[in-house]
């Protein structure tokens, strides 16, 4: 079975014929060649594939592309279209919130989702908000500092 979907990604609409089993993360990476979204596991644990789907942070590996039909998706490529980092990216840069960078796109969206609902989170609240995003390099501490810095810079 082939399925027609129309998904807006970073403000641009993509119409594609897909297999129903195509996951959103594969749609992004393979169908429209936005490879910034990463795949780190196969059991919905690691969060590397986290994107915004209609402004909600979701794991793109646990969502069919068909479920995103007609929806709007924001990926890491959509945050600095002119090459200028947004304030959240800037905070991760300044606070050394990344090392190998593989978990970073997902971390950014998990952090963004938190700051939308809590503009002044405590370190503990940040750690809880990041519980679904695994990082093997940083020990999370500088990610927590990054999110604090972003909050202080007014990121919501």
């Amino acid at each position: 079975m082939k399925l027609s979907v129309s998904i807006q990604v970073n403000g641009r609409t993509y119409d594609r014929e897909i297999e129903p089993r195509l996951l959103l993360v594969h749609f992004l990476r393979d169908s429209i060649a936005l490879t910034g979204t990463k795949i780190g596991c196969d059991t919905s644990q690691c969060g590397a594939c986290t994107v915004l789907l209609d402004d909600v942070a979701v794991k793109a590996c646990t969502c069919l592309a068909a479920q995103a039909d007609g929806c709007s998706v924001t990926t890491i490529e959509g945050l600095a279209p002119d090459g200028r980092l947004n304030a959240l990216q800037e905070a991760f840069w300044t606070k050394h919130g990344l090392q190998c960078g593989f978990c970073t796109p997902g971390m950014i969206f998990a952090a963004q989702a938190l700051l939308r609902v809590n503009g002044n989170p405590s370190p503990e609240q940040i750690r809880h908000a990041l519980e679904g995003n695994l990082c093997r390099c940083t020990g999370y501490q500088n990610i927590v500092r990054s999110v604090q810095a972003a909050a202080a810079a007014g990121v919501r």
Partner: peptide
Amino acid sequence: VGDPAVRSR
């Protein structure tokens, strides 16, 4: 349940 992204879906 799970984590924030899981809870959102």
